[in-house]
């Protein structure tokens, strides 16, 4: 294995100037680029005030075939979720660990709420997210001890709670949030999902079909915060 490593690196090195001064300069350029991780070019649509970004997020997520709704409080959002599940006859919900969600009275609407990784056959999941990215209506969701990744992929419906304060303009803004979170948790999570709309495929005759292997619907509940 190491022979491959040395062979490849030696060939790559042979293609550039490795005299002492050049080598030192090259290493410095690489170290600085990584340390500064400066944005290259953020398109104008990734910029704007809060109201603009909220509107853009809604527009872009909807365009990407997600359902988006606004709610005054998280309690109101949970009530809306329960109503929606009940209307569709869905009786089970899998969620990440969240005290308020578990305290919600799901049972009165005939819904069983469980905290666990998802399994084949699950109908719906509810998860939080780290950020909503306005430029393309994208959710950033990270794995964590009580936040298994399977919740984003196995159930037929994926429901996401997004606080309005989590809406950012660009991918770069979301990386900043991720780095802040990493500082608290001690490093990168195993998985960072950037999700834009529901699962789909156009592999049969280039015609778009929803619900390929991931969720058939992505439903985003935005909780307005001042």
């Amino acid at each position: 294995m190491n022979s491959g490593r040395e062979q490849i690196l030696a060939k790559l090195r042979a293609k550039r100037d490795t005299s002492d001064a050049a080598e030192q300069a090259a290493r410095q350029r690489v170290a600085e680029r990584i340390q500064h991780h400066a944005p290259v070019l953020i398109p104008a649509r990734g910029l704007g005030d809060k109201a603009e970004l909220l509107a853009r997020f809604q527009q872009m997520a909807t365009e990407a075939i997600a359902d988006v709704s606004l709610h005054e409080t998280e309690t109101a959002a949970l009530a809306a979720i329960a109503d929606q599940l009940q209307q569709q006859g869905i009786t089970s919900l899998v969620t990440t660990a969240d005290a308020q969600w578990q305290q919600h009275d799901w049972a009165s609407q005939g819904i069983q709420c469980q905290v666990r990784p998802a399994q084949v056959g699950d109908h719906a999941s509810l998860t939080p997210c780290l950020a909503g990215i306005a430029e393309t209506g994208t959710l950033m969701i990270t794995s964590a001890p009580h936040h298994p990744t399977t919740l984003h992929f196995l159930p037929d419906w994926h429901l996401v709670m997004l606080r309005s304060s989590q809406i950012v303009g660009s991918y770069e803004d979301a990386w900043t949030r991720l780095r802040q979170q990493n500082q608290q948790t001690g490093g990168m999570p195993r998985t960072v999902n950037m999700i834009t709309g529901a699962s789909r495929s156009a592999d049969i005759e280039q015609r778009l079909q929803m619900g390929a292997h991931g969720p058939k619907r992505l439903i985003i509940f935005i909780v307005m915060e001042n």
Binding site: A64, T136, T196
Partner: peptide, 15 residues
């Protein structure tokens, strides 16, 4: 597409 549906970063094995 404006963005693909799933852009997934993987870093190491499960914690």
């Amino acid at each position: 597409q404006e963005f693909s549906v799933y852009n997934t970063l993987s870093t190491g094995p499960r914690r």
